[in-house]
């Protein structure tokens, strides 16, 4: 399906990425998931820079963004994204290990759509991811155009 939502998962910890993917699957989310190891890869994909896979025009995307990442962290990615007139339409779910209220506040200010704390408590993590899956299944996502 051409207009199926693509989930972009920027997460440097492969374990976390695996756990997220598995749980999204268990929650019944079968959308395509593209994983990035760091902020740079994510930006390259979105801004169509460098080698590797690039964003396609006209597709709706959702970005699940870990804050703590090497090279370029999640907050910087969010900043870049929200400064771009087209890309800023992409909903961003921040995902982090901390629940520091200041960081949460900062991300909301920068325009993230949602903020999830990775709980060590697995049950809660699962619930959080499933809720995200549920959210994804019912929300209409904007398609991102952009040149090329």
């Amino acid at each position: 399906m051409k207009n199926e939502l693509v989930i972009l998962l920027a997460e440097d910890d492969e374990g976390h990425a695996t756990l997220i993917k598995r749980n999204l699957n268990r929650a019944g989310i079968s959308n395509q998931i593209i994983c990035f190891k760091d902020g740079q890869e994510t930006l390259d994909f979105l801004f169509r820079e460098g080698p590797g896979q690039h964003r396609e025009s006209g597709k709706p995307y959702l970005l699940i963004l870990d804050i703590r990442m090497p090279k370029i962290d999640g907050v910087q990615v969010l900043e870049r994204l929200k400064r771009d007139p087209e890309l800023k339409k992409i909903p961003v779910v921040m995902l982090t290990t901390t629940d520091d209220p200041r960081e949460v506040d900062r991300c909301h200010r920068l325009g993230c759509s949602s903020y999830l704390t990775k709980p060590v408590d697995y049950e809660r993590f699962v619930i959080a991811i499933r809720q995200l899956g549920l959210f994804l299944s019912i929300v209409q996502f904007p398609t991102i155009n952009g040149e090329g």
């Binding site: 910890d13 374990g15 976390h16 756990l19 703590r68 290990t97 060590v120 699962v126």
Partner: peptide
């Protein structure tokens, strides 16, 4: 404390797995 939680999430998550 922040970074130590990351592996913990894995340990916990994969324990559950």
């Amino acid at each position: 404390s922040h970074d130590l939680r990351s592996p913990l999430v894995n340990i916990q998550g994969f324990s559950k797995e």
